[in-house]
Design a protein around this nucleic acid. Structure first.
Lengths: 204, 204, 204, 204
DNA sequence: TATGAATGAGCATTCATTCAT
DNA sequence: TATGAATGAATGCTCATTCAT
């Protein structure tokens, strides 16, 4: 059991450092030596825990997607809460995850690294990504059905919302003038009312 | 003259093929041999036209940004047209450029490849990107001043709009059910009225 | 400890083989594969020990200059011995080093390879070369001051002596009719009395 | 005839520039493009005049050795002049040639570039070098026979004299404090009387 | 006589991966 | 569990050389 524990701890360490490096520099520009150095050991030791570099990437993405999904899953079907409030929670969760602990590893997942995965692994990650997007679509659909939202193509809308949030990491700096909460609130309102929609002017 | 022409034609060819490959596989995953093969000659011949692989990337990005900017520049200050109409034109131009000839090379520009440029080159491309974004901000500002748009942070709004359009390339397929025009119209309305803004329900 | 030892042994091996090849063919004409093959391993393994080919060259020159200097340093200021005797010892040491173990690597140092070093590295080697030449100049100066030598420009004389010895490697063959000792004795007398100086005729 | 003239002029130009570059950077570090650029035309044009880069080197060395030999040949057998005076003339000629017009191209010849020649070409250049050295040996021998010089090994002495002069190029600068004449006079006296030989003290 | 274009061999260097210890 | 050493494939780039014009 001590053995298993150590193994889990070390893999967690590798995931964390690899995730950070992958998202900072990209998968191709990060080498195994860098990851190992960040972990405090030699590169050959990585292979005691993972079969290959791609295997590390897969584990990083799998772990990140799992966390992200578990945070929002409950929002999909919770009919006790109004769709708009669920949307707000979803967006806040998404933004805070991107800015917080997993910010770096999760952001990789999105677009860039998929092409570096084995077909099998790619499939698995895309499935998770779809699961995640499906939660948002459900919320949108519920809003449309309840009349709270206009009748819009839910696929395109979901896509637009996720796109706009994902790219935040390109300019967000923790020391800047916007807090994650402010950012997610701003985007939520913008998504709700657009540039010229009714109530937006009241709250801006 | 024929000589200069050939050189220009070949560089154009390299730009085109390199741009395509860079955006399909990423800069790091594309090698010079692939580019050359796509052009129909040997890899060493690339160096007759460019100093380095990075130099090819820079030329691809420079060319793409130049085209894109020239398409929208006139929209920034044209006070004869209503801001919302200017915004619609801007978005349509942006979408069509992403879907059309330069779709692949331009999309590279945005996020991924900047880190692979020389500091000097990166600066030059970022300057162009800023020029482009500034056009959108001007339009937003004009709309706010004219009262057509709500009072929103123009920086965040511009960013959101560009983000949502850029990521279209991830799922857009020319053979799919949406034409570029439909897509840009959809996004324009979404940007104008959001999920629940007033007039959106009438047109959806 | 065994680990550190192996590394030191391998670097010594590389220095030896690289030094030999550099002086036989020149730095530019020697490639990393040749060095590695001479060492009995693959070329990529060189980079486990050195950053670059230039780094190997620098280490070769640094090591050779260090040995050479340590052999003659004590002659510079030893006032217990007559300058002419110190000169004889200096020349013998110089010749034997050129003919002996380090013959090949040291001879590189002198003129040819400096231009292939990094400015920083070049500076370091030139500094060592100057240290070496300074020993000779001190001997010459002492001889002039003691009246044993004629009043001659010590810089030019030192230079002439070193030049004449360095080029020995071009024709010297261990199987030839001259032993290193004979050669150094001959040159010493020639340096002392020239073609027609007084006592030379007695000993020739 | 005009054609032949142009050809000769162009080859002379190539020899001059190639010789300069070879001796400044070494044969391996000089590329055909550099030579062509220095000549004012494109690299492919070199091949209209020479078969290969090695062929250019050979022509440079052949031309330089021819000039040098023709300058000193008459000194070998001229019994009307005292050996010491012939030696002085030889050394002055050698120094002035190294410092003067051909300084650069000739200096290449000496040691470095031989290894880059075809065996056949190398043989031809070595033959010329030997011819040149033979002149000096004849002078030495004559001096010994006439009793003007001490009985010394003429081969080693010739070699020493040439070595000392050849390396002058490493530190000589036209703007320095020594003129070529001064240098050759200094070395001549040093060669004649050494550090402590009789008459040297009178003239130094 | 000169040039632009293209080629192919070679080279330094990187890097994921393996393996004995 | 961890490391030092070694490998082999890949890659960007250089450069002498060729050839059609």
């Amino acid at each position: 059991m001590a053995k298993t524990l150590k193994r889990a701890v070390q893999k967690e360490l590798i995931r964390k450092e690899a995730g950070r490096l992958f998202s900072e520099r990209g998968y191709r520009s990060t080498n195994i030596k860098d990851i190992a150095k960040a972990c405090g050991f030699e590169s050959s030791n990585i292979y005691y825990y993972y079969h290959s570099k791609e295997d590390v990437l897969f584990d990083v993405l799998k772990d990140a997607t799992n966390r992200v999904i578990s945070q929002v899953r409950h929002l999909g079907d919770n009919e006790a809460i109004k769709p708009s409030e669920r949307l707000e929670a979803f967006m806040e969760s998404h933004v805070s995850v991107l800015m917080g602990y997993d910010r770096r590893s999760y952001s990789v997942l999105v677009d860039a690294a998929l092409g570096d995965l084995t077909p099998k692994h790619r499939k698995a990650i895309i499935k998770r990504r779809d699961t995640y997007e499906m939660v948002l679509r459900k919320i949108i659909r519920a809003g449309i059905e309840s009349g709270e939202f206009n009748k819009l193509n839910e696929k395109l809308v979901s896509f637009a919302i996720i796109s706009m949030i994902l790219r935040i990491r390109l300019w967000y700096s923790p020391s800047g003038s916007f807090s994650p909460e402010k950012i997610s609130q701003f985007f939520f309102k913008f998504v709700m009312y657009g540039l010229s929609g009714g109530k937006a002017c009241l709250d801006a």
